[in-house]
Design a protein around this nucleic acid. Structure first.
Lengths: 130, 130
DNA sequence: CATTGCACTAACAAAAAGTTAGTGCCAACA
DNA sequence: TGTTGGCACTAACTTTTTGTTAGTGCAATG
């Protein structure tokens, strides 16, 4: 996925997720981190509040959700909007980049959900062999 | 991502990555685990031997690569072919399911690689604000 | 002889995730 | 009145996962 520089006046920046130091590697690690995919996918239907998102994603803790949203916000994938109220009122939504990423993640999720019978069968074969 | 059962004679199995116990959640965790995405993407161009794949993915250890390939093989995403030789000769390639998954991952990777300037800018803004 | 390549695994250390408790305000309920 | 729940986080500590290092036995090379 490395892009080659143009020989023209505006050279493209080379980005390559396979390279450890590349920013695209870091963003990949944020998006595919422990709760990244489900968090981005959970924002797919529009702005949502913190605890609603948490209830949407079975198994995530407040701590891990907060941490994940922070990292996604820092990378420009998620936008956080807070009101000066008590109790707090915070909404999260996807940026334009976040929407592009979410499209790809939904595609992946659909493939995985459709593949459950194949996977279950494969796991049984693998476990029976070892 | 939950699919509703048909009312017809062949009901669909409900799969939902947002549910902790669902097999699709487990596969998602395998594919998007620490080295899962890069491993599947590294297999995209066809069968490859262990150390060639390791050299392809900057930063992965033999241990983590072996562990990742094992998990992917168990889920039916990767096929491992070993010859009875010394030194060992082992090749890995994607299954049909693995190919479908790789297509989606390549799409994600392309979005992320193209987004490096936006991300860099967003990170600087975020860090300057805090 | 030592080194390299092959594809892993065992033992231990470091890093990340998970669990629990806490913050202060308001509203609802017993 | 006191208690509970809701809100959106964070601190302190525990558990799990990842990373580092050493090891396996054979053949080829310098």
């Amino acid at each position: 996925m490395a892009t080659q520089p143009d020989t023209g006046p505006s050279a493209e920046i080379i980005a390559d997720v396979f390279q450890r130091g590349c920013t695209s590697r870091q963003v990949l690690e944020t998006v595919t981190g422990r709760w990244g995919v489900l968090t981005v996918a959970g924002l797919r239907d529009g702005a949502i509040r913190f605890n609603a998102l948490r209830r949407r994603i079975d198994g995530v803790s407040e701590k891990m959700l907060a941490q994940t949203l922070q990292a996604l916000e820092r990378d420009g994938i998620v936008i956080r909007e807070a009101r000066a109220t008590l109790p707090p009122h915070v909404e999260y939504r996807l940026s334009e980049l976040g929407e592009r990423i979410a499209d790809r993640l939904i595609g992946l999720i659909e493939v995985l959900e459709d593949s459950v019978p194949e996977v279950t069968s494969a796991q049984q074969n693998y476990d029976a062999r070892d």
